[in-house]
Simulated assay, not measured.
Amino acid sequence: MSIFVDETTKVIYQGLTGSQGRFYGLRNRDYGTQVVAGTNPKKAGTDVEGIPIYASVAEAKEATGATASCVFIPAPGVKGAVMEAAEAGLELVVVITEGVPAQDEAWFFNKVRRDHPGTRILGPNCPGVISPGKANIGITAGEIAKEGGPVGIVSRSGTLTYQALYELKLADIGVTTCVGIGGDPVPGTSFIDCLEAFEADPETKAVMMIGEIGGSAEEEAAEFIKAEMSKPVAAYVAGVTAPPGKKMGHAGAIVSGGKGTAAAKIEALEDAGVRVGQNPTEAGAHMVDIVASL
């Protein structure tokens, strides 16, 4: 099985008529994802290489039966795009856009959780989600992922997500689903959300988790792993040498007030029984060992 998306998932691209939305929407379709519609109120009635464009998400959903959307709207319009998708009743909204204002993220995260509990937001500022061989929503290159299992991946870092997928592929290890939750301060989907889903998925036998400095998400995940996870976990935490007070890449990757350091996160994960690599390749080697022992 897979979590969140599979071969039956029908996806609307909000921003399909833009250059990036078109590029990745067509790549996702070529991968085998059911990209069934795009939205643009100014271009309704047209199409992008056979994919129909509708004026709104609600119209696109009614016409196609889609359950998910992928957002390639520029940052100032993301709040409206997310709410449009949630109000249309979509189950999953994958927000690729980076640079979304933190106050917007916090606002629509809480608004959707309160008023549209059936909608899951992934991102913003994330590579998306791929269930190899079934569906790819976002910007991850499908070629670097081996389908099957038994490993599930959840990551805050896009680039390290790709490295984890490819290193496992080189070791001939398949992945059930790889979820990039994004590195912004208010991610719509957390490590714990994904760990819980992987724990419940019978085909996922082990989990690889990639964290980074900033916030407390990794420590909270460690508590969940210790209390709730029966499946082995390997991890890597980026930013061991990051100086306090300096943002490192992602908006949420900052050590502040002595909190959010890589050392504290590694200690919490190791205390929960997680095998933590000192670099991404070592984390991959840990997962190879775990899979060999399953």
Rank of each mutant, 00 (worst) to 15 (best):
K146Q: 15
K146V: 00
K146D: 00
K146N: 07
G148I: 07
G148Q: 07
G149E: 03
P150H: 01
P150R: 02
V151F: 02
S155M: 06
S155E: 05
R156I: 05
L160D: 11
T161A: 02
Q163C: 08
Q163T: 14
A164D: 10
L165V: 11
L165K: 07
E167K: 12
E167Y: 13
E167R: 13
L168E: 10
G174M: 11
G174I: 12
G174R: 12
V175E: 04
V179M: 08
G180I: 10
G180L: 09
I181Y: 10
G182L: 12
D184G: 08
P185W: 02
P187T: 04
G188R: 05
G188Y: 08
S190T: 15
F191R: 03
F191K: 06
D193G: 09
D193H: 04
D193N: 13
E196K: 15
E196C: 13
A197K: 13
A197M: 10
F198N: 11
A200S: 13
D201V: 09
E203H: 14
E203L: 13
T204D: 05
K205A: 02
A206M: 05
A206I: 01
V207K: 00
M208A: 14
I210G: 03
I210E: 02
I210Y: 04
G211P: 12
G211D: 11
G211N: 06
G215H: 00
S216D: 15
S216W: 06
A217Y: 04
E218D: 03
E218W: 00
E219Y: 00
E219M: 11
E220K: 15
A221S: 13
A221G: 09
A221W: 09
A222H: 01
F224G: 10
F224N: 10
K226C: 10
A227C: 07
A227F: 06
S230G: 15
K231I: 01
K231E: 04
P232K: 01
P232Q: 01
V233M: 01
A235Y: 05
A235L: 05
Y236W: 14
Y236K: 06
